[in-house]
């Protein structure tokens, strides 16, 4: 019996040794990436969270832990509350508009038989253009006297305003620029989504009697775009939360804080007033929003919306 068992035991040891070697190889291969992940992403995030609990100022040699003091100050701060409200409003306008218009544009382009590539390129151009350069163009468009927007409005008898300098309109003007810039992005994503809808389904719908434009959209296009729509919503949500460059170039948060947004507040607090601890607290709030959206994407997208 012992003789019969021995080879089996040998095999076990050999197997174990091989498995251990595999584990080492795996760590060796994943190691550099893991190290960089900690160094460049997780490390800074942890640092920001820690800093948000201090009163550290950029360049200062000492710091004091203030616990949740920064957060308490944050939510008592009228500017921050305005900033958060503005950001949420910006997201609430930009996301549905760019998603809706993007879906519409994608369906129009997809329905064409010719020039599809041309339209795809034209719509995508704003995404590739540098927003800061484009912001200058928008500044001209919104100019109260010589701007195209007001000239066009004058043609139909509507008196325009100084869009970017009027507290009542400045945020909406920025929303318009945001929508213009994201439209190509959502359009291209939806075009890809539409391409993956099996054409047989439209044929089946036609034979089944669901053949009006509305029924085709409701029975086939819309449900089949579920995964794409979810992805676009989350990505656009994250992108819109990150609005910064148009604010920095065109309005600097004004007039009267009407275009103050989270990232811009964070930027001024951290790099104008050097209140790094306070800025970190804003960053943490911002990160929480983005994290929530990402979790929605991971959970919802992978579980509920995929059919196959």
């Amino acid at each position: 019996m012992a003789e019969a068992l021995a080879p089996g035991r040998l095999l076990d040891t050999a197997q174990r040794r091989r498995r251990r070697a595999e584990t080492w190889a795996a760590w060796g291969l994943a190691g550099p990436a893991t190290f960089l992940l900690f160094l460049l992403l997780l490390g800074p995030t942890v640092a920001v969270v820690v800093l948000s609990a201090t009163d550290w100022q950029l360049g200062a040699k000492t710091l004091r832990f203030v616990g949740l003091g920064n957060y308490a100050e944050l939510f008592a701060d009228r500017v921050f509350r305005q900033s958060l409200g503005n950001t949420l409003l910006y997201v609430a306008i930009t996301v549905p508009a760019s998603v809706g218009l993007g879906l519409g544009a994608a369906m129009l382009i997809e329905a064409r038989t010719s020039l599809q590539a041309f339209y795809r390129t034209v719509y995508f151009l704003p995404v590739t253009a540098t927003l800061i350069a484009m912001a200058v163009v928008w500044e001209f468009l919104f100019h109260p006297n010589v701007g195209l927007v007001n000239l066009l409005l004058a043609l139909v008898g509507i008196a325009g305003t100084h869009w970017l300098n009027n507290p009542a309109t400045a945020l909406y003007a920025l929303c318009a620029i945001g929508i213009w810039q994201s439209l190509g992005f959502t359009t291209v994503l939806f075009l890809a989504g539409l391409k993956s809808v099996p054409h047989d389904l439209y044929d089946a719908a036609a034979v089944d009697g669901a053949d009006t434009a509305w029924e085709r959209f409701r029975r086939v296009t819309w449900p089949m775009l579920g995964p794409t729509l979810m992805f676009v919503l989350v990505i656009m949500g994250i992108r819109s939360f990150q609005v910064f460059d148009t604010v920095a170039v065109l309005t600097a948060g004004g007039p009267a804080k009407s275009t103050e947004v989270l990232l811009y507040t964070m930027y001024t607090e951290s790099f104008h007033y050097f209140r790094t601890g306070y800025g970190s607290a804003i960053t943490v709030v911002f990160l929480l929003f983005v994290l929530t959206l990402t979790l929605i994407q991971v959970r919802f997208l992978d579980r509920r919306v995929h059919y196959a």
Partner: peptide
């Protein structure tokens, strides 16, 4: 197609996945 009173079975089955 709807008014022709025909039914079709596709190679891909074309069932609505949702």
């Amino acid at each position: 197609p709807k008014e022709r009173d025909v039914a079709m079975v596709f190679q891909s089955y074309a069932l609505y996945p949702y």
